[in-house]
Simulated scan of single mutants.
Amino acid sequence: MDTIAATVRLAVRAEARVGEGPVWDPGSGRLHWVDILAGAVHTSDLANGWTTTRVLPTLVGAVSPKRTGGLVAAVTEGFADVSDEYVVRQHVLGDGIRMNDAKCDPDGRFWAGSTAMDFAAGRGALHVLEADWSTRVVLDGLTQPNGLGWSPDGRTFYLADTAEREISAFDVFGNQLAGRRLLCSFADSDVPDGLCVDAAGCLWVALWGGGRLVRIAPDGRMLSTLRVPVVQPSSCAFVGPDLDLLCVTSACEGIEPADNAEDGTSYDGSVLIVAGLGVSGVPVAGFAG
């Protein structure tokens, strides 16, 4: 694979245990992202690096802006409304299960993958939250559902299962999936985590523990790799007014600063911005509820 030459800079200096779920909010011009294990929901102004934080009384996998204001969150218990008050509106998960990554589809539904706390095989599922806050399980028998994304035309859905080291593609019919097929698989040393899709229909996938992202064609071909100065890149999203900047979250859980500190400074747990990629992202809809 080709190595991408791009400019990588520090956007938000942080020490997130597991930074995840970056999502651009075009209404406020800010980035929302979470620290799963800390239950922290961060909102960052990327122009100056300022961040405000709200800590929830639970683990939080991801959030999305609501079209009516505030945020919807995928949390340990299920789905929560994070507005003036914090309210879990759908308790859909049992003991030992939590929500992981989540994202809105083009119609404003909020899709979230659940996983066992110990990542036990087959105990995960894919859930969808409708605008009226009703839910349904779309897919079960998963292990560690993680990165989610849709093709630019909204007709194909992508889902990474981190523990299984694979990404699947599906045909989309509203809130239903069909035609599951393996898009690509990874070696044991490559751990696919969060992902996003660019306007050309290619996937950008963070490789946890690999210090890089890969760009994958819609047919599953590995096109190129992007190295980043963190050991554990966790997810990515296109951000900025023109969606031409790639935001990369990361995690410091389980690693020593010396593992990735050539100049004595570790960026693990921080948020990075990548410029000069020559591609842009697809707008992500807010939650319609």
Rank of each mutant, 00 (worst) to 15 (best):
A261R: 06
V92K: 02
R123T: 14
E85T: 15
F238M: 08
V34C: 09
V88C: 02
G19E: 08
A237P: 06
K66W: 05
F157H: 03
L226M: 07
P283H: 05
V72C: 09
Q176E: 15
V8L: 08
E85A: 15
L245G: 06
E20G: 01
L226R: 07
S134T: 15
S114P: 05
A178W: 07
A251W: 04
Y267R: 11
A6D: 09
K103P: 01
T58H: 04
Y158L: 12
I167N: 02
D132H: 10
I255L: 14
S266M: 04
E77W: 00
V239I: 15
G210L: 10
L272M: 07
R165P: 05
P229N: 13
L159A: 04
A116S: 14
R9H: 10
T53M: 11
V34W: 01
R221F: 04
D101N: 04
F79L: 07
L243Q: 15
W33D: 06
A178N: 01
G61I: 01
V88T: 08
D25A: 10
C184E: 07
N100R: 02
R30Q: 15
W24E: 11
N175V: 15
R212T: 03
N100K: 01
V228E: 12
A116N: 05
L177E: 09
L10D: 14
G254C: 06
G122F: 07
V172N: 10
L148Q: 01
V282Y: 05
A251C: 09
P65D: 12
D193Q: 11
W133R: 02
Y86H: 09
L223V: 14
V284Q: 13
A178I: 06
D219C: 08
G61S: 02
W33L: 05
W150A: 02
G269S: 09
C202L: 04
V228C: 12
R180D: 00
P192H: 03
D132G: 12
E15S: 14
G21D: 11
